[in-house]
Design a protein around this nucleic acid. Structure first.
Lengths: 346, 346
DNA sequence: GTCCCGGATGACAACGTTGTCGGCAACGTT
DNA sequence: AACGTTGCCGACAACGTTGTCATCCGGGAC
């Protein structure tokens, strides 16, 4: 423990140092820092100058363990894969909302693994985040009872949680595919195929449901042969698209349930030389979608609104812990470009 | 302060609760939690069971203020815009590396604003992050002296910092554009244009430098009329591309310095009906680039390696604070598709 | 029997902050 | 003159944890 005094400056200055320099008690420094009343202007000024000259910064962490409300001014976010544009865009919106309220965001990717999701939540918990925003993956979010019991609010985004009720923000997935169907129908299409992910994925199920109900509304029923689900990657989607397009009669239009499906399907159309003949509407917008030929008509999710709503809900929940849980549905938007405008007769 | 005892459980259990239940001292609980020696197997077991039955979780934050090393097992990351695929991909890689070492990542977007960058760093600092990874924006990172003085290591990624030396990881930007030039030259191109961002942006300057040196190597000199820089968005890039293509003689190939430039340039080529005639190589890969017609040949950055290297450097720096600063250059990769294969004679 | 040693254990201080409370001076009121 | 009130301020406890240290106990060496 014998150390040269010159090395001492590694430790950042504390309110104690500030107090010594300003010749006041530590509590007075604390009062100034927290804008509490009861400090004379002169003293306040002296403290401020001491803070300035030492380069003092409050230790938020030490502060939070003592504060009554325990707030750390940070929130935790679990997404599926931050490298995914959907996730990063939602994250960015949450960040912005949090930043306005001087909060920081801890982010983790679950990769759809429930165990990882849970681990992340625990890690966030041990850092005392003020709240959690989660894109839930597993079939059971009841582990969150622990967080709730200890006063940490939770908001689900993109999908509702299971076995655990909480504020939730989702896109209007069903309306999106329904709009796609009606858009295509208006251009004369009757044989419309749907390619989607596993039905155990909430969004995939919703999108198929929207597709089905719009088809039933228009045609009495959707032809089952034109509906392929359970496609987990672009390779499977590619194969399914080839199959569906090989049917007789072949569909004149395709609705793709997500990004990966779109990639597989467009590749399939490309191989068949059918990109200009078969109409196609994809769920989720894609960078440069308008540079494709034909430019890709998409159902775009409002990721900014999704993230902002989730963050807003979280902060509102922090202010009103007892209020009833709410569910917000964010509208999606059909962006007409070219691939969705191809008529049935082509 | 009179409260019903039933509401007391909002506070999470502490080692005190665990100690009481296991009938040991708090220090013994601490020893078990930290795998310190000197606890008999029987006691250890009793503590473990108490931890389990109470659902106790360590309060990392309280722990860190007392620990000798002050570690919080979290790091701070400042990117320019997390919604940008480049940033989110790098972030994801950093996350993964950090997660392996049981660290969490706080992320913020600076939007290229030096003030915001600095604010974020301060916020991270007050949360006692163990280290910082920064995509620097301003012309001066000397404010980081404060962090360094207090033992917080810094790593720059994508661009070097200014007025502050630190470990740095960058892509080999110059090699990327040089490779693009050679690739085009091998297909007979002599009149190659370059469209890029402001030269004050490090990556933009490096990319132009690589372009220039390869052109000089091949042709003695790059024709200045074919070089346009200072393009800050796709609209400006669009205009510049139209201009350059209107020259006589017109360039037979285009090298685009970044994503936004690519969007503008491809739109311009589209309008000119020249997408199949003028070769084009873009910096930065794009989702679905291979669905474009012609599929876009790109110089792809290895974002995963960029992020992983930065994280590795940070952790190595934490272990060896005194070691000399290092600079790592990550190779880029030319991904030949179609737009770069168009011959000069087309 | 005495001494020493090492393992196990807990009492207590400390980290940097905020909450509680009491003291002191100045002032106005009886 | 005595009293209460108000504004300002600091001593001290407390948050949940880890670091320091003293203590206790059993066993082996003399």
């Amino acid at each position: 423990m014998t150390r040269v005094d010159g090395q001492d400056d590694r430790r950042a200055p504390t309110i104690k140092d500030v107090a010594a320099l300003a010749e006041v008690g530590i509590k007075t420094v604390s009062r100034v820092l927290n804008d509490e009343p009861g400090v004379s202007p002169g003293t306040k000024d002296r403290v401020r100058r001491a803070v300035e000259s030492l380069g003092y910064r409050r230790n938020t962490i030490a502060s939070s363990i003592r504060r009554r409300d325990r707030r750390t001014a940070s929130i935790g976010l679990v997404v599926e894969d931050l490298a995914n544009p959907f996730a990063s865009s939602v994250t960015r919106a949450i960040q912005d909302y949090a930043a306005e309220r001087a909060h920081l965001v801890l982010v983790g990717s679950s990769d759809g693994d429930p165990a990882r999701e849970r681990t992340l939540v625990q890690e966030f918990g041990s850092r005392l985040v003020d709240g959690l925003i989660i894109v839930p993956s597993g079939a059971d979010q009841s582990y969150l009872d622990y967080e709730r019991a200890h006063g940490v609010p939770v908001v689900f985004v993109d999908r509702p949680g299971r076995r655990f009720k909480a504020d939730t923000v989702v896109s209007d997935n069903a309306a999106g595919t329904a709009a796609a169907v009606r858009h295509l129908a208006a251009r004369g299409h009757e044989r419309i195929a749907f390619l989607g992910d596993r039905q155990s994925v909430y969004t995939a199920a919703q999108r198929l449901a929207g597709f089905r109900s719009a088809m039933e509304e228009l045609r009495g029923e959707a032809d089952r042969r034109y509906v392929r689900t359970g496609l987990r990657d672009s390779v499977q989607a590619h194969a399914a698209a080839l199959e569906v397009c090989g049917l007789d009669p072949a569909p004149t239009a395709l609705v793709c349930g997500n990004n990966l499906v779109t990639i597989g399907a467009v590749h399939a159309l490309q191989e068949l030389g059918a990109r200009d003949r078969v109409a196609c509407i994809a769920f989720d917008d894609i960078e440069l979608a308008d540079l494709l030929r034909p430019a890709l008509t998409v159902v775009a999710q409002d990721t900014a609104a999704l993230g902002a709503s989730a963050a807003r809900m979280l902060f509102e929940r922090l202010d009103a812990p007892g209020a009833p849980y709410r569910r917000t549905t964010v509208a999606v938007r059909l962006v007409p470009r070219e691939s969705g405008e191809i008529p049935a007769s082509a």
